[in-house]
């Protein structure tokens, strides 16, 4: 997995609560059996004026000039900010793959849906929870100057604003360690293979019906 330490970038503002995973990546793209290539379809229904699917070249589609990510001022942002309950809905990891493929390294919001939040950490994308008033302050700052550079410093657990102010955020120590070091969680778990086998042996005795073929 790609490591995450410090990212400095401007921030793209998506001023909506409850941004669901159907909005982040609509269902027709979930038919892809690959992990990459979802970036052009991120926020597809908002981003384009015409319908799309996997077989339509996104370059041939009509772009919605009113959608925030299409505005030149916000091009190239590696950080997205939104309102409460970002990533609600389906468990599709394609939502994180699409954000990552588009170029977002982090999402800031006052709250995230649980499955999306967990999926981010498996892909080197950092979900940052800030207080609602801190999120508002960043929205205000971006509105004043869309080019303002913000820094997310994961080791220090801080979002630093261009004015010099910093907002601290909480993160689970294990998740932080894996992200900062870009560790493969499956590889780490397999180091516990003996513990898993010991658990199974004990459990097979207690509840054999769980191990019926």
């Amino acid at each position: 997995m790609k490591a995450f330490t410090v990212v400095s970038s401007k921030i793209a503002p998506l001023d909506r609560p409850n941004v669901d995973t159907d909005a982040i990546i609509p269902k027709q793209y979930l038919k892809s059996i690959r992990r990459t290539g979802f970036g052009p379809f991120l926020f597809d229904d908002w981003r384009y004026l015409d319908a799309g699917d996997l077989e339509i070249d996104p370059a041939t589609r009509r772009v919605n000039p009113d959608f925030v990510l299409n505005q030149p001022a916000h091009k190239g942002a590696q950080i997205l900010i939104a309102r409460d309950n970002f990533g609600c809905g389906s468990s599709r990891e394609h939502a994180v793959w699409a954000l990552d493929d588009y170029g977002f390294r982090a999402v800031i919001a006052p709250s995230f849906a649980d499955i999306f939040f967990s999926n981010c950490f498996k892909n080197g994308v950092l979900p940052v929870v800030l207080k609602a008033e801190e999120v508002q302050a960043i929205f205000d700052g971006v509105a004043k100057n869309p080019d303002a550079q913000f820094t997310i410093d994961l080791p220090a657990q801080q979002v630093r604003l261009p004015c010099g102010k910093a907002f601290s955020f909480e993160i689970d120590a294990g998740r932080k360690h894996n992200l900062v070091n870009g560790l493969d969680e499956i590889g780490l778990t397999l180091q516990q293979a003996d513990a898993i086998r010991a658990y199974e042996a004990r459990r097979r005795g207690e509840a054999p019906w769980l191990f019926q073929a």
Partner: peptide
């Protein structure tokens, strides 16, 4: 519900963190 990385984790280890 779990994402695809956890599907792989569950397949490979029969556990989740």
């Amino acid at each position: 519900g779990i994402g695809t990385s956890e599907v792989e984790h569950a397949l490979a280890t029969q556990t989740l963190v």
